[in-house]
Amino acid sequence: MRSHWGVPVPGGRKAVVVTGASGGVGRAAALAFAARGERVALLARGREGLAAAADEVQRAGGEALVVTVDMSDAKAVDDAAQQVADTFGHIDVWVNNAFAGVFAPFTEVTPDEFRRVTEVTYLGCVFGTRAALHHMLPRDRGTIVQVGSALAYRGIPLQSAYCGAKHAIQGFNESLRCELLHSGSGVRTTMVQLPAVNTPQFDWVLSRMPGRARPVAPVFQPEVAARAIVHAASHGRRREYWVGSSTVATLIANAVAPGVLDRYLARTGFDAQQDEGEHGELGNLWTPADGAHGRDFGAHGRFDDESRADSPQEWMSRNRGRVGTALTVGAGVLAARKLTRLVRR
């Protein structure tokens, strides 16, 4: 049986934690887990977004638990994890998705702003992972999904704080993964590297650009990211998932010719992250945007018209076993045909 999200519906109900669940990718991931009938703990700062997300989770078939928390506060994150464990009995999956950002040249980002982005995006992931391990290690089971980005490998202009934090998460996760493997732990950690996604962040992010912030095309719908996250949560043995052909192309190009990519992004990266119109004054760096403006932003941003709802590359990444088998069978058939022609000669 499959849900309308295109992911298998399992027999058991897992206890899932999603950080940054009030909007964007976190909101979409929470709904994707709910469509499987899971119990979903929604962690974020914004009360309006969390309330709306909880209602959607319940309508989708899941059980919702709302926990208001700032992920940069280690004690608050520990308390949130304990609340989830007390309510659901345990934690099976923890998705680290919360982040913050500033769109501006590095020299125009204040030290406090840079620190805040790092604390929410990087340390929030670290604190979330530590809280999850506290509950998973004694049971010797569970999966931690780090929501990354192509920017975890390839920095781009105007997002120095965010890129630095995502790079840090990448290194942290690799180190932790090695430690878990060394100890023979049944707890898994994996990372999902996302492309540009159509989320509301481009309307609430703190920006000092002359134009209106936008994602670098091509843009994918948050449900594409959500499917990958749900799949990763059930297949944590795999170290990493790349979502979207643009992510694959960027990471390969950066590995092969990073200097060329530096020059390309220097030439195109500024205009590619702006469109016409002035940026808004929402800014969620210090306070949640939904609380300041009394509205729920949902999962989608303003780029529905250009966003892709499917990604063949993401499907292949989730089904690489089938793809590998098909390629092997295809190669075998071609080899057999060639051998037959040679024999007939």
Rank of each mutant, 00 (worst) to 15 (best):
R237Q: 09
Q83V: 13
A249K: 12
T199M: 03
G321V: 15
A255V: 01
G20Q: 02
V95R: 07
M136F: 04
T287E: 15
F297R: 09
G26E: 09
R188G: 00
F88K: 00
H182L: 11
G148D: 07
L261I: 13
A299K: 09
R345P: 00
G24A: 06
A28H: 07
D275Y: 06
M71G: 01
E240K: 12
A28P: 09
I169N: 11
G62D: 02
E276D: 15
A74G: 01
V333C: 04
A233H: 05
A226P: 07
V197L: 06
P200S: 01
M191V: 11
D310Y: 07
D55F: 00
F114N: 11
A217F: 05
N173V: 10
P111C: 02
R263F: 00
D271G: 05
P258G: 00
E306M: 06
A21Q: 09
L43A: 12
T19F: 11
P157F: 11
W242R: 10
G23E: 13
A225L: 02
L31E: 14
A21V: 12
V243L: 01
P222Q: 03
V147F: 00
L180R: 07
V205W: 02
L342V: 12
P200Y: 05
V248L: 15
E48A: 14
N254R: 13
G259C: 08
L206S: 02
V187A: 08
L137G: 00
L151T: 10
R177I: 06
H182R: 15
L31Q: 08
L285E: 09
D79L: 12
R341C: 03
T87C: 13
L339P: 00
P105K: 07
Y153I: 01
A35D: 14
Y264V: 15
A165T: 01
W286E: 06
S183L: 11
A34Y: 11
V57I: 11
G124T: 10
E223A: 09
G298M: 01
Q83I: 07
Q146W: 06
V333M: 03
D304A: 11
A226R: 05
T325E: 09
S3H: 11
N319Y: 07
Y162C: 08
L151Y: 04
R2Q: 15
V216M: 08
V205H: 03
P222L: 05
A54M: 04
Y153T: 04
R36W: 04
P288S: 05
A81K: 02
D55K: 11
H167D: 00
V18I: 12
E281W: 08
G236Y: 00
F202N: 06
S207C: 10
R239S: 14
V7T: 15
T287I: 04
D78M: 07
I144W: 02
R237Y: 02
A257C: 13
A74I: 03
D203E: 14
A257M: 14
V243C: 00
T143K: 12
V256W: 05
R295D: 12
E306A: 11
A232G: 08
D112P: 00
P8T: 12
Q273K: 11
R322M: 15
P157E: 05
E314Y: 00
R39S: 13
V40F: 10
H235F: 05
D92S: 09
L151C: 05
F303A: 04
S234I: 01
T19Y: 10
T19P: 08
E223S: 12
H231A: 08
G61W: 04
V109I: 15
G269A: 04
